[in-house]
Simulated assay, not measured.
Amino acid sequence: MNILVLGNSFDAHALHMRDALTKAGTAVNYLDTRLFPTQIQISWQPDIQAGCLVLPGGHQLNLQDIKSVFWRNFSAPYIPNLPEGQQTIAFSDATSVLRTLLQAKPVRWVNSWQAYQFHKEKPLQLSQVKLLGVEIPATLISNNPQQVIEFCKIQPKTIFKPVYGGTHTQFVSDFHLEPHRLNLVLRLSPVTFQEYIPGTNIRSYVIGEDIYAAEIRSNSLDFREDEKAQLIPVELPDLVQQQCLAISKALMLEWTAIDWRLKPTGEYVFLEANPSPMFLHFEQQTKFPITQSLVNLLLVN
């Protein structure tokens, strides 16, 4: 049986997982979707539910021989320059085949196409988590300047970030709320505004039924900007561990990193669940066996 790593050898996490799985005694290959259709061939027969991959170098894999797939990153297919109409058709056809591959064959995806699509809808993700009874920050997603101003007025401090992601969190200032500037920005894109939660950053990794958590000590508003952030292993309360498992299930995640804010009062506030988080630095600093848990998840029958 084979395991695929959806990604490429330039990604340290993909390379690490390939090496860990190889050490565990299983055959591992990269599925770098940028190489389809120029260097990768995909065949699929829906009437008999069978297909195969031919990877760069000519190595062929029957889809029924693939046990599981570790999703590190997914890239759009690369289509060489063609006349505009042909380019659009070729790209759409290649994308359709890739999406079929990601959904049609019932192998174990860690994580699935559906989970990744859900992650793109972060406002919906927050709503789903709130329905579980988990506390989330007061949040406004809007491109309505008046509603943004009113929301920010009732919060002691407010942060803002893109709805989809892609850049770091910032505090809202009078500069950001200047009417002319605010109107210009919100005509281009809606923005996520949230109450600032004072307290401590907590990151919890959920891998199947395994949960590993650490406090992230940092003076930065967004700890991802702080290379000197300290990671201190912590034991989550039973209720929060149950919430971690419930969130993973509700968001269709086989594994995830959930970011929390721990208030001085001891309450945990959900911020986000990531479907393909970086983990090597976290594992090195905390000594948690994240890699082994991932290997176990991918090899389980």
Rank of each mutant, 00 (worst) to 15 (best):
E84L: 12
W109K: 05
T88W: 05
D93E: 13
F118D: 08
A94P: 03
P80Q: 07
Q87M: 14
P77V: 02
V107E: 02
K120W: 02
V110N: 13
Q87I: 05
V110A: 15
V97P: 10
V107D: 01
P77H: 02
S127F: 14
K130N: 07
V129H: 09
T100E: 13
F74N: 01
S75G: 07
V107A: 08
L124V: 06
A115S: 14
Q103H: 15
A115E: 07
K130P: 01
L131H: 14
S92T: 02
W109P: 06
S75Y: 15
T95P: 00
K122W: 08
Y78H: 11
I79K: 03
K122S: 09
W109T: 08
L124C: 03
A76P: 03
W113S: 10
L82M: 13
R99L: 13
W113E: 09
Q128V: 09
L124K: 06
L126T: 07
H119F: 15
A90N: 08
S92G: 00
P80R: 08
S75E: 15
Q128H: 05
P83A: 08
A94D: 00
I79H: 03
T100K: 15
T88L: 13
L82Q: 14
Q86T: 11
Q87L: 10
W71R: 07
H119N: 15
Q117L: 05
A76K: 08
P106E: 06
V97Q: 15
I89S: 10
P123Q: 06
S92I: 00
F91I: 01
L82G: 09
Q114S: 12
Q125F: 02
F91A: 11
Q125L: 07
S75D: 14
Q128Y: 03
R99T: 03
T100D: 11
F74K: 02
L82S: 11
A94K: 01
F118A: 10
N81P: 01
T100W: 12
L102T: 02
L102R: 13
P80G: 06
R108G: 01
E84S: 12
L102N: 02
K120R: 12
Y116N: 07
